[in-house]
């Protein structure tokens, strides 16, 4: 083979690489819910074929539990990847490890970032705000309490909006995080509008960052609800922390 490997030689079209350019080799493991026998191995090859692997080899098959078989399959895929057509969806902020979040707060604020969290209205479901704030965290990520450069105050459930505004002021907080689970008659939207209106009235442009989250929010509704950011289902503490330092960078002088 005389052609140099890489994009230039293939015009942006690539295939997986085993040990030779263009061999298209991949490995795959999966379980089928059938007992291990010759038919099961045939079934595994059929699946590999439908996934674009040709030829494919079952290199390992093992009965597992009752009525299941685990397979490892190697083979060449017939598919091509056009790198020039790959679209990358950019998040507006980079995801940072806790260490970098702390360093950035230290550098830009030269004091701790103060975060206030609560569930407002009659919502007693603190699962969301606790997952983001408690050290215990969520999805293998530690909560914001874990960040040395943040001072986190979790007010818990059923906090009234005036109380929240009062505490935000008293604690000179940088960001207010509110989670909303209950969505009966759009309570989450009503509560959020009440929240943003109250902060606007009390503090104007010097209000803290307002961040809401919950499983039924549409992240595109920030303007409509008057908040800075909306997080949906499955958000992890690391995403929130990364967003906060990003937003503080943009917002400097605005808050407080």
């Amino acid at each position: 083979m005389n052609e140099p490997a890489g994009l230039a030689a293939t015009g942006g079209i690539v295939r997986p690489y085993g040990d030779t350019t263009g061999d298209g080799m991949v490995q795959l493991s999966f379980t089928l819910p059938i007992p291990h026998d010759a038919r099961a191995e045939g079934a595994a090859l059929q699946l590999a074929g439908k996934m674009g692997m040709a030829p494919a080899m079952v290199v390992h098959a093992k009965a597992m539990s009752e009525g299941f078989t685990f397979f490892v399959v190697y083979g060449s895929v017939t598919h091509l990847v056009d790198v020039s057509k790959v679209e990358v969806i950019e998040r507006e902020y980079p995801l940072l490890p806790a260490k970098d979040v702390n360093a950035q707060i230290k550098r830009t604020l030269r004091r701790k970032l103060v975060v206030l969290g609560a569930c407002i209205g009659t919502d007693a479901h603190t699962v969301g705000i606790d997952a983001i704030l408690n050290v215990k965290g969520f999805a293998g990520e530690k909560g914001l309490e874990y960040y040395r450069e943040m001072r986190v105050l979790n007010l818990g459930a059923q906090v009234s909006v005036p109380e929240l505004v009062h505490r935000a002021r008293a604690e000179r907080c940088d960001a207010v995080l509110v989670s909303q689970v209950v969505t009966q008659r759009d309570a989450h939207l009503r509560n959020t509008r009440e929240l943003s209106a109250a902060f606007r009235e009390a503090m104007g442009t010097r209000r803290p960052l307002l961040v809401v989250g919950g499983p039924r929010f549409d992240p595109a509704m920030t303007d409509e609800l008057g908040v800075d950011r909306i997080f949906g289902r499955g958000t992890t503490p690391g995403e929130v922390a990364s967003y906060l330092v990003h937003a503080m960078g943009q917002h400097r002088g605005g808050a407080r």
Binding site: S29, F30, T31, S65, F68, F70, A139, G140
Partner: peptide
């Protein structure tokens, strides 16, 4: 598969 998925049948077996 820690931190990837809740364990699959095959993960537990392996």
């Amino acid at each position: 598969t820690e931190a990837v998925v809740t364990p699959w049948l095959s993960d537990r077996d392996l």
